[in-house]
């Protein structure tokens, strides 16, 4: 009852992270997708050149992120008065009002800037050397795991939707125009999204720990 017939090595087995169902995994062709037959959770979706694509998209997104943060992304004009806001202004806006709100500014900084940047940097750190055909760096394992764990907390795309909502709210009242970093921020969101579709954690772990 407990034993598995023709007991496969643990290397060949995989457990569904959602429902714990156990599968024996043959070698999976690139581009194929393995799904749990019980809960339809994605098990494996190896892709050819995924590592390379992930590293390049991540580094592109990281570079644009630098530009997106510092420059104003919205410009407001009404009755001869004007104002503009950058991502940094937005993050600071809570702390400026009162010290009580300062934790919220810290949270915003984490969700919009720090954590997404850590994710991208972590991926580049862990996977970058693989692209160049070298061994994974020393802390590749914990760094990659951290990058994966941070996924729900990186809210770049949520922030972008927030920008859109804010835009709708004040568009009727004032003239709103986009600053340069608005577009780079959109590019960041798109690149991160493209990268995320490339990421199959389990496949990447296999690549990363390939002897």
């Amino acid at each position: 009852m407990q034993a598995v017939p023709e007991k496969p090595t643990t290397e060949e087995l995989i457990a569904c992270p959602q429902c714990d169902a156990l599968y024996r995994v043959p070698s999976v062709p690139d581009g194929a997708r393995l799904r749990c037959s019980r809960c339809h959770a994605l098990l494996l979706a190896p892709r050819a050149g995924a590592v390379e694509a992930i590293v390049s998209l991540a580094s592109g997104a990281l570079a644009l992120m630098v530009a997106s943060i510092a420059f104003p992304f919205l410009h407001l004009g009404v009755a001869g008065l004007s104002a503009e806001a950058s991502v940094i202004d937005t993050i600071r806006s809570y702390a400026v009002v009162s010290g009580l709100m300062a934790p919220l500014s810290v949270l915003l900084a984490a969700l919009i800037v720090v954590l997404p940047a850590m994710r991208l940097g972590g991926l580049i750190y862990a996977l970058g050397p693989l692209v160049a055909g070298r061994d994974p760096p020393r802390f590749a394992t914990p760094v990659f795991r951290l990058a994966m764990n941070l996924r729900p907390w990186a809210m770049t795309e949520v922030f972008m939707i927030g920008v859109a909502v804010a835009l709708v709210k004040i568009a009727a009242l004032a003239t709103v125009s986009f600053g340069p970093s608005f577009w780079t921020f959109i590019a960041v969101v798109l690149l991160v999204g493209a990268k995320d579709t490339m990421v199959c954690e389990k496949s990447l772990w296999r690549v990363l720990t390939r002897p």
Partner: peptide, 15 residues
């Protein structure tokens, strides 16, 4: 017994 996962045919390397 350990089940056989669904295997979807590959679409070729994206890149």
């Amino acid at each position: 017994v350990p089940g056989e996962p669904d295997i979807q045919p590959g679409k070729g390397g994206l890149l």
